[in-house]
Design a protein around this nucleic acid. Structure first.
Lengths: 114, 114
DNA sequence: AATCTTTATCGTAATATTGCAATATTAAAT
DNA sequence: ATTTAATATTGCAATATTACGATAAAGATT
């Protein structure tokens, strides 16, 4: 026991979970924030922006990259990172779907007068 | 070591991470899917819908509830669940923000000809 | 070539998550 | 009051994550 039973779920469910899981750490949210804040992609100084040791940041970047949320481009001896729009579109379309559906049943759901 | 260093990040970053983390498991995506699929909130039969033992499902529901993503309403000896729209709006607005910003710099970012 | 800079990997300790059997709890039904 | 049904909690084993020091790798600089 202990390992997630991915085989019981759909490919889509597993994929959404992988994306969400990758964003499920404040350091990785902070990385995304930083990539967004900048006007262009970020080359090199992500480590200095975070309150974590370099190996830890490297590990977080790797996880975001494995999930497909960011792209990295070697530029000399440093690496330029930016957000991978496509992965975010998948998440966003799911959220849009949820918002649309919950809006429909908002009034009738869960806390009726009874 | 081993524990997430939440104190180094902003409240907003930690909160977004909590929401994303709660969605970072296929069983919990499946629960959300099921709550969405139904026309109204779901009373009672979530356990039967998932390929996991009852205590495991109960635990996943608890995590979604703790994160604020779903609401549970006791109805006799069963519980009615539905999605908490507000929590999703926070995530969605973040994603919308990301999409808008990445669209702007799409062409200039990360894989220049060079 | 030696050195510096940047990023990755290894190893490891601390902590968290996942899953479930067993058991408890709570309310309905008999 | 017992029994039944639905959900929660406890306890525990297996596995995963987090963090970082030490070290490696790869390109830039001198």
């Amino acid at each position: 026991m202990g390992a997630t039973k991915t085989e019981h779920f759909t490919h889509r469910q597993n994929h959404l979970a992988v994306l969400a899981k990758a964003l499920g750490h404040p350091a990785r949210i902070a990385i995304m924030d930083y990539l967004l804040k900048a006007d262009a992609c970020i080359c090199g100084d992500i480590v200095n922006e975070l309150p974590l040791a370099q190996p830890t940041v490297s590990q977080h970047l790797k996880e975001l990259k494995n999930a497909g949320l960011i792209k990295g481009n070697t530029e000399g001896n440093s690496i330029c990172y930016c957000i991978n729009e496509k992965a975010f579109q998948q998440l966003q379309s799911w959220f849009t779907n949820i918002s649309a559906k919950t809006a429909v049943k908002r009034s009738q759901c869960c806390y009726p007068l009874k």
